[in-house]
Amino acid sequence: MLDWRWDFAFEVLPRLLLATLNTLMAAGLGYGIALVVGLVFALAQRTRYRLVTAIARESVEFIRSTPLVLQIFFVFYVFPQFGIRLSPWTAGMIAIGLHYASYLSEVYRGGLESVPRGQWEACTALNLGTARTYFRIIVPQALPPALPGMGNYLVGIFKDTPMLSVIGVAELMHTANAIGSESYRFLETYTMVGLLFLLISLPAAAGLRAFEAWVRRAFGLSR
């Protein structure tokens, strides 16, 4: 029934490992975009201008409520229709970056809202300006409660990168599909892909937990 072939597994392992680097790069780049754009989404929802707030809110809701894989297709195929050609990498990074930006904006928002009102009042009483209030007092306190969510989405974006294979980004899943269609050996290929994901995401999740605990201590928020 099962004919697992070690020789085949070792033969394709280097290709899979190389593709893993692409996967990690895609996750890293996408997350970088998401961190910045997410902040823009979050701050746009805190402005005094009702229209800006409403547009930001609805955009976040729309992006969060629709499938990432469809958004990847949308970005990849729609821009050329208007004469802008995007490489698979560019289209993929825009789509996945925006998708996770909408998640991260919610995390940021939750973090900012978790800072007690008394902290803002103390800043007023000390006459600190808006920028100083944000950067010295509010953000350092909003960050620790936001970290678990931020960490989850870092692991999350890593696990969603296989969707980029649908438009031909040469990450792990794309390479596995190529190997599968050349050799018709799916057992070793997809099993190893699964294991590679586990081997990276489980330690990463554990590492992030430890990092959160360290930050809380470093910020003096726990004993």
Binding site: G118, A122, N127, G129, R136, I137, F219
Partner: peptide, 26 residues
């Protein structure tokens, strides 16, 4: 200046840092 019922000290700063934040920044 004001002192609050629930102190509102900045939890991520030491006692000393709480006391020098305003004088330095403002």
């Amino acid at each position: 200046g004001m002192c609050f019922q629930h102190f509102n000290l900045f939890p991520h700063m030491t006692a000393l840092q709480n006391c020098i934040e305003g004088p330095i920044q403002v």
